[in-house]
Design a binder for these strands. Structure first.
Length: 201
DNA sequence: GCCAACGTTGGC
DNA sequence: GCCAACGTTGGC
């Protein structure tokens, strides 16, 4: 008698719950990049400066167009209403931190993924199976002075030697992330720079 | 699951 | 406008 072939009863494991991976560290402060200078993308003009945010109704906007999983996960899993973020100008003549914003609404579906005319249209997404999320943010205030990427870079390099607060700032360790997490130590230190003369550093 | 090819980001 | 760094894709 032929040995009974053991029918592989594939363990019908309950569908893996799509839970957020246990975050190794919980962040409550953020840096969000936006391009303040005009640029064409798929024939659509892209530009959103800190002043543009100030001009929005209620000085609030949805942060659409993020198409990076890490950044999406931060918005989906960790950003909470009331948290603070820096508004950073990227891909421009003068990159750096210009102001403060506040999270006004937690992660929800980014509608631009379904919009064929949007430069961030993603044909792999359906309404039943959206991929991308966004949050709402509100203008809080300009910093007392502009804190340039250059200044932050200098401090980062110093702090790598000394073990200072900006030793592992995401702006340099994960440079391409458009939504970056900051520790409160990093956030508070950067914020304290606005009261200092940049020449004295 | 590796990794080459490719695309994008963003400083310079 | 260049290009290094790095994230994504897809063949194998």
């Amino acid at each position: 008698m032929a040995p009974k072939r053991k029918v592989k009863t594939k363990e019908v494991s309950p569908k893996k719950k799509r839970t957020a991976p246990a975050a190794s560290q919980v962040f409550t402060r953020w840096l969000m990049k936006s391009e303040p200078e005009s640029r064409l993308q798929n024939g659509v003009e892209m530009k959103f400066s800190f002043d543009d945010l100030k001009k929005e109704p209620d000085q609030t906007t949805c942060w659409d167009g993020v198409r990076n999983y890490q950044a999406r996960n931060f918005m989906r899993d960790q950003m909470k209403v009331g948290q603070s973020a820096f508004f950073y100008h990227s891909n421009c003549k003068d990159p750096g931190i210009v102001g403060l914003i506040e999270i006004m609404r937690e992660g929800y579906v980014d509608h631009t993924q379904f919009d064929k005319k949007d430069p961030h249209f993603d044909p792999s997404c359906t309404k039943d199976n959206p991929k991308w999320m966004m949050v709402d943010v509100k203008y809080v205030r300009k910093l007392k002075r502009f804190i340039s990427l250059k200044e932050l870079k200098t401090l980062h390099l110093e702090h790598k030697e000394s073990g200072g607060p900006l030793r592992s700032l995401a702006l340099f360790t994960r440079a391409r992330l458009s939504v970056q997490p900051l520790t409160t130590e990093e956030f508070d230190f950067i914020l304290s720079l606005e009261d200092k003369d940049p020449e004295e550093q």
